[in-house]
Nucleic acid binder design. Sequence first.
RNA 1: GGAAGGGUGGCCGAGUGGUCGAUGGCGGCGGUCUUGAAAACCGUUGUGCCGCAAGGCACCGGGGGUUCGAAUCCCUCCCCUUCCGCCA
Length: 425
Amino acid sequence: MIDRALLRDNPDLIRENLRKRHMDYDLDTLLALEARRRELLQVENLRAQRNDLSKQIGQIIREGGNAEKLKTQVHALAEEIANQEQELGEVETRFEGMMAALPNILHPEVPEGESEEQNVELHRWGESRSFEFEPKPHWELGEALGILDWERAAKMASARFVMDLGAGAALERALINLMLDTHTRKHGYTEVSPPLLNNERSAFGIGVLPKFEEDLFKTREGLYLVPTAEMPLTNIHQDEILEGEKLPLCYTAYTPCFRSEAGAAGRESRGLIRLHQFHKVELMKYVRPEQADAELEKLLRNAETILEMLEIPYRRMALCSGDMGFQPRQTFDLEAWMPGMGKYVEISSCSQYGDFQARRAGIRFRPEPEAKPEYVHTMNGSGLACGRTVAAILENYQTEQGTVVVPEALRPYMGGLPEILPRLP
RNA sequence: GGAAGGGUGGCCGAGUGGUCGAUGGCGGCGGUCUUGAAAACCGUUGUGCCGCAAGGCACCGGGGGUUCGAAUCCCUCCCCUUCCGCCA
């Protein structure tokens, strides 16, 4: 949610923002609703009159007088108030609905562009190994090694699920532990193990509701399976006023993530890239506005550190205006090199939201002990997506025999296992 | 799932249908006293919206209703606690 004051003070900025995002949005209707809403605020005068007369009635009755005439007068006034309040309510509902669907204002440094094609590569790390053989995609490797099983996952669940077995399951568990240990012990994040079903308010708070309900799995009880730990982590401090000196607050969580992937049929359907359930270690910060850019850079470095520890080549991309999501004001993707697939694949997405989510979720802080509360800035990023990291390891560390060497950094977490060999049935 | 009791300001906790945005306590802030501190005492201390301001409006879990007037009465939903049942 953006600041209402912007609508009045700088509608052109919003219009320009929509243009950069290549988004269709009926801003004129929103502006008209806002104007009407403000007109209707004059009901407050009527309410003031009513309050005043009611007080007089109380006074008269206490003194034993007859207040019938006044009562009739107030009754008529109340009807008029009710009429205006009804229109105000309708206008407000429409206004709020449209506000909730208005995308965030972009950070000035977001490159302008229409689609993925215009994303800007900022830097690369690591060299791709040279292969003396044709490197295989991870799904072939995983299947041949018997550590990834799509067929049985589909049998017990449906397509777009996977089951990890043996060293595959152990590899993912090792990754989770490496990431959490690094982020908590070296990077100063507090580990969280949050509820994986969140309510509507929390989904609204991060901006996936009301616009993106079809992407979520919903229970009969009306709760949503978390599509990312961003949802519970951002709602830890929902409706709270934080102490300024405690910021930034840094949290990390390992969670499964559930996405319906509606409308994704046929896209990148193979392997570990796009699943209904995947696992992710998330990084999340609540910061003061002036800290935001620097803290996002640190967060990016925290995520990149994991890729460097695993010695997986990657590049950092700045998403362009047309490729960015609805909620963030700036997004950087980390893309891991996948030799088997022959391309870079997103393995982490790190975004800052300004006060967009804080406004929706009601998260504020006091800059000084006695000062007025202000909205915090929120940001988060994957650190990293586990399934895609497994894929990157399989593809980067594969041998000609189809086995996979275990990265040095992971061996202590896998009982010293140096290499993943075909699993015996 | 069944039964009972609750949801009030940063926290605890009062609250009669009318001067209650809400008594009181704790905590916070300012002050008096003190060499300093503690104690004691005095004052102050919610949020949002509209407004240059004065001020006005709204908010006592959410929504609806009764009434001239609702924190207070009625309906409904949600949440929490305790007991019972079930259960990793």
